[in-house]
Design a protein around this nucleic acid. Structure first.
Length: 131
DNA sequence: AGTTTGACAGTAT
DNA sequence: GATACTGCCAAAC
């Protein structure tokens, strides 16, 4: 299911491109608002990414819990009612945490631009030893 | 059509 | 590190 195929949405909107990337985030990995913005060629639009994720159409069923801010904090958790909900999802995917509310970006960060450019997904998966 | 608003990020302290 | 302050820009009002 690709967000661009939704007939009920405006394919020219920035939001839609954000959704396309979010759906591509591998299980057990996370990315940041800024990384997504850079992958879209707009390094300054990190806030827009957050704005887009705050109103994701429910039917798209995106893994939006895999998006954290640049220090690994679960800033989006409050939209789930409480960050603890988001944390639970991540723990189920074996995403490593540094402390109560920060994921360990060093080991599970996923760069959208790297995947969308040249790097073959096989090489990336091998590098991170994805099962 | 002008203003306000963020699930952010960079810099400075 | 942790705050505080400032730029950012599409969207919602």
């Amino acid at each position: 299911m690709n967000a661009f195929e939704r007939p009920d949405m405006d394919a020219s909107s920035f939001r839609l491109r954000v959704y396309q990337i979010v759906e591509a985030i591998p299980v057990g990995r996370v990315t940041t608002y800024g990384a997504i913005a850079r992958a879209l060629g707009q390094p300054r639009a990190a806030r827009i990414v957050g704005g887009a994720l705050s109103r994701v159409p429910a039917h798209l069923d995106l893994p939006c819990h895999r998006v954290v801010n640049r220090v690994g904090y679960l800033s989006g958790g409050w939209s789930f009612g409480h960050p603890d909900v988001m944390k639970t999802h991540l723990l189920e995917e074996a995403v490593p945490f540094r402390d109560e509310w920060h994921v360990d970006l060093e080991s599970c960060f996923w760069d959208p631009s790297a995947d969308f450019d040249s790097a073959s997904s096989d090489e990336v998966d091998d590098f991170y030893h994805i099962a």
